[in-house]
Design a protein around this nucleic acid. Structure first.
Lengths: 135, 135
DNA sequence: TTAACTGTACTAAGGATACTAATACAGTTA
DNA sequence: TAACTGTATTAGTATCCTTAGTACAGTTAA
């Protein structure tokens, strides 16, 4: 399902969190869609269920998914996300990255075009094989 | 000198790296200016010299400072920085942060104004108490 | 009800990493 | 020479990640 770097200094559960965030943000997995179960995914990736669980717990606390005992874990619908805390964190990340990028030689134009690129590939753009995916 | 969170999960030396990057980027410390010595800073902050050294080693490998045995550590002049590797890393950071920000509800306009803000406070803007700081 | 699935919680053990500590060597400067 | 600087090494402790095993609770279908 994913390609993880088991030898990375970055913890597996954090890599999982990032991967899932990316899939959710790019709407590869959509609202209320079921995520693989903790045990299934653990078996598939030959890592411990506890590690998956830790990733899911983190995703839930960040508002990206919700879990129902006995049923499974599901992608949180868009509107209910965006806790104030998470927003502040992301803003800080953004500031740091932009500052560093500018310092390392990227121009405002470079950054703007990157912004453009992402903006298209995320919310507004790709309606690929579904013309109006209303539920 | 800084406010560090000794209890954070983020290693002290990484916090130091970030702080120094920020100071260098904002030109609070300028090119060829001397950084506090490993031992002095360690004494001031009541942490181990080795931790400071680790931070300095990291900053040097990223091209932000240079060190001279017996003399000290100094801010690297602008032009010589910007290794291709670092640029790629920053671009990835930027992409992730922008995607997440958009997803959490920030608009392009929000991000643009943040960009504007940073752009002013970095290279072009503040020439505060020095009118033309030519060395 | 039963069986098989789901999430969740807990304890224990190992391995890796961060940090501290102490010491040593080499170059610079007054 | 003395006091500063960076750099390197070794060792011990603490913390975190990951695995492993077990257990409990809710859901679903036979």
């Amino acid at each position: 399902m994913f390609d993880l770097d088991l030898r990375s200094r970055k913890p597996i559960y954090e890599q999982l969190v990032d991967k899932f965030k990316e899939l959710i943000i790019k709407e590869v997995i959509q609202a209320d869609e079921k995520l693989p179960s903790v045990r299934t995914l653990a078996r598939q990736m030959t890592i411990n269920p506890n590690t998956i669980q830790k990733a899911y717990r983190e995703l839930e606390s960040q508002g990206y998914i919700y879990s129902l005992k006995g049923k499974g874990s599901f992608v949180q619908a868009f509107s209910e996300k965006a806790s104030q805390e998470e927003l502040i964190k992301v803003k800080e990340k953004l500031k740091a990255a932009v500052s560093e990028a500018l310092y390392l030689g990227m121009t405002r134009a470079d950054i703007e075009s990157l912004l453009q690129e992402i903006d298209e590939s995320t919310g507004g753009g790709i309606i690929d094989d579904k013309t109006s995916g209303s539920k």
